[in-house]
């Protein structure tokens, strides 16, 4: 599903990153480990089409994304890539349910409230749907983030340090939910982390 080849990104002439090639199949989880400053988030931004690589190739589901125009890139990202950020970002003025269907709306799709409800049931925050985002705990927010990332049934889910702010119990829960959701929609799951607790859980690992 996801293949990268000789990705290079330079912030400036002195500071540039060369990334190892990544191969992640449909329904598979790939763990990218690395300490701070090794370019983890940069790699995620490259794959998530938020940054353009200096050189190299990214292929998602047969589509080379590096050559897309800016406009195509926005539409491609909205429809095919779900991103879970390290710090949960939401539109604070909207409630939980609206934040979920916002993903549909911004991707230019019909607002699928039924899917939002199903996901909230599967992820265990059904009773929070009508609550303002600020009322949620860190773990709850992370679960809503997961639900939002799969609202458009993307082909690839990118998770940036999804567990770093969570305790052991929540960490386990979130990872299990993340994996099962990715498997449900047949998406490749790419987790970028320095969290050693996840090391034992996945076999496809790349260390930066």
């Amino acid at each position: 599903m996801l293949n990268t080849h000789k990705l290079v990104f330079g912030y400036s002439r002195d500071k540039s990153f060369e990334f190892p090639d990544i191969h992640c199949k449909k329904g598979e989880t790939c763990l990218i480990l690395g300490n701070s400053g090794t370019g983890k988030t940069t790699l995620l931004n490259l794959i998530g089409l938020l940054l353009k690589p200096t050189s190299g190739e990214i292929n998602l589901d047969g589509q080379s994304t590096v050559s897309l125009s800016a406009k195509e890139m926005i539409a491609f990202r909205a429809n095919n890539i779900g991103i879970i950020y390290q710090k949960s970002h939401f539109v604070n003025s909207l409630n939980v349910a609206d934040n979920l269907v916002l993903a549909n709306y911004l991707a230019g799709k019909e607002q699928n409230t039924a899917r939002a409800r199903d996901l909230s049931q599967a992820l265990g925050f059904e009773e929070l749907l009508s609550k303002p985002i600020q009322f949620l705990s860190g773990g709850e927010q992370q679960r809503v983030s997961i639900a939002r990332s799969v609202m458009n049934a993307p082909k690839l889910i990118l998770a940036d340090e999804p567990t770093s702010n969570l305790d052991d119990e929540n960490c386990g829960k979130v990872i299990t939910l993340l994996e099962s959701q990715a498997r449900n929609i047949g998406a490749a799951l790419l987790i970028v982390t320095h969290d050693q607790r996840l090391k034992s859980k996945f076999t496809n690992q790349i260390t930066l």
Binding site: L50, A75, A78, F90, L106, G108
Partner: peptide, 12 residues
């Protein structure tokens, strides 16, 4: 953050 988030989710 909100704006960046919405932009990343496909907003123009």
């Amino acid at each position: 953050y909100e704006m960046a988030l919405m932009l990343s989710m496909g907003a123009q």
